[in-house]
Design a protein around this nucleic acid. Structure first.
Lengths: 223, 223
DNA sequence: TTCCAGATCTGAACATAGTACAGATTCTGA
DNA sequence: TCAGAATCTGTACTATGTTCAGATCTGGAA
């Protein structure tokens, strides 16, 4: 890459692209800011006109990657044939597939993805799960009483499998087995949630009332 | 801590202790090898007589912490009152509790814990889940057909919740809500697994036989 | 006890990384 | 056209991981 002009023109995106490529080549931790700038043909300090620090760069890259994941999940759901449950299964399966397709990228994302204000990732995987669960509940595939907070449990389950796979702590031989386990997991969670006993009882429960419980079990989304 | 003797005596453990303390103080990434050695009152290079690199130190620390987690999970299961399902729920709940009790430590462990030979962590959380699932299956709480690979799904589910909590991507207000969600998740997975359709059919299935499927769905444990 | 091989620790040094800052270069808008 | 803002360079500073030669201690054999 030659640099004819003094100004790069779109250094911010170039840095994100370069960092992403380096992550794929050298792993989530095997690259440096300097290396990214050198490869682009720019001095190391140039990066600081676009990102306050290396961490900010990583966060921005992570956000971009998470948004892409959200997009492909939504696409997978939209292309799924069958009812709303099939849509949700497709999205969940895709979350896991994404993690093993490029473990280094997944590791970067999972490591960088702490809660911080300004997480304007759209569509966030969490939201995709939530939307599909809403649809499932609307169409009767999930009792309304089981819906609140379900997206967190679904997200957790798939996130755990994805993480363990990306970290190499669990190995599945081939995409066949991977899809199978992902489907098994999301299937079990959905079936189990649907089988939950109705929490609302006509008589006030001995210890805590339903409304009290609702208030205490406040559940928050991402970031 | 004064160092009267030239030889520390147990520098290896002191380094692990020091690093662990620093992780708790400054976060999973906010500490340095040098700082740990300085605090102990030893030169930076001394560490290299006990660990080949900083990464190896971190790995060793992580192994120690994971083993402790396994121990407390086993203890939680042992102290649980009720049937084998209650034991498993107690262990699963404990996994999640551990993660929010010290998120920095959990983050270090989850980040350092890649697959590597020499992972002689005992008892590994994976193994605790597997043992409790065996017990549950033995006592009829889980169909034998659902048992194979179940420990991975259970581990995944709880690992995901623990990770999202430690990373701050999901917030639950108070230990009450946390226990509730952890129990909900493990409960849903177990109920869902128990409800799986029997895979073994008296007539050979059209596409693939049961044994073929078993062979293809090979499932591996940790590391 | 004596003494040496090996384990352990120090001190100085190196390479690299992230980062700050002053100044050069280019772009933008009035 | 031109000034101010944005962008980029060059240099330098600091901290960190790491190496290595040599100092210091320890355990066991003679």
């Amino acid at each position: 890459m030659a640099r004819e002009r003094y100004h790069h023109g779109d250094l911010r995106d170039a840095l994100l692209d370069g960092a992403e490529a380096l992550v794929r080549e050298r792993g989530a931790d095997g690259w440096s800011l300097r290396e990214a700038t050198v490869r682009i043909g720019v001095s190391p300090s140039a990066a600081y006109h676009h990102f306050a620090s290396r961490d900010v760069l990583v966060r921005a890259l992570s956000d971009r990657l998470v948004a892409r994941l959200g997009e492909r999940m939504a696409r997978a759901a939209a292309h799924a044939r069958g009812g709303p449950r099939h849509r949700l299964v497709a999205a969940a399966r895709d979350y896991v597939r994404w993690a093993i397709e490029d473990p280094a990228v997944a590791r970067l994302v999972f490591a960088a993805h702490r809660a911080e204000p300004g997480d304007a990732v759209s569509p966030h995987p969490h939201d995709v799960f939530a939307a599909e669960l809403d649809r499932l509940a609307d169409e009767g595939g999930l009792p309304a009483s089981a819906r609140p907070g379900a997206e967190i449990l679904v997200w957790s389950a798939m996130h755990g499998l994805a993480t363990l796979l990306a970290d190499g702590l669990v190995r599945l031989d081939g995409p066949r087995a991977l899809d199978r386990q992902a489907e098994r997991l999301i299937g079990a969670v959905l079936t189990g949630l649907a089988a939950e006993p109705e929490p609302s009882s006509p008589w006030p429960l001995p210890r805590t009332s339903h409304t009290e419980r609702q208030a205490r079990e406040n559940v928050g989304g991402p970031a």
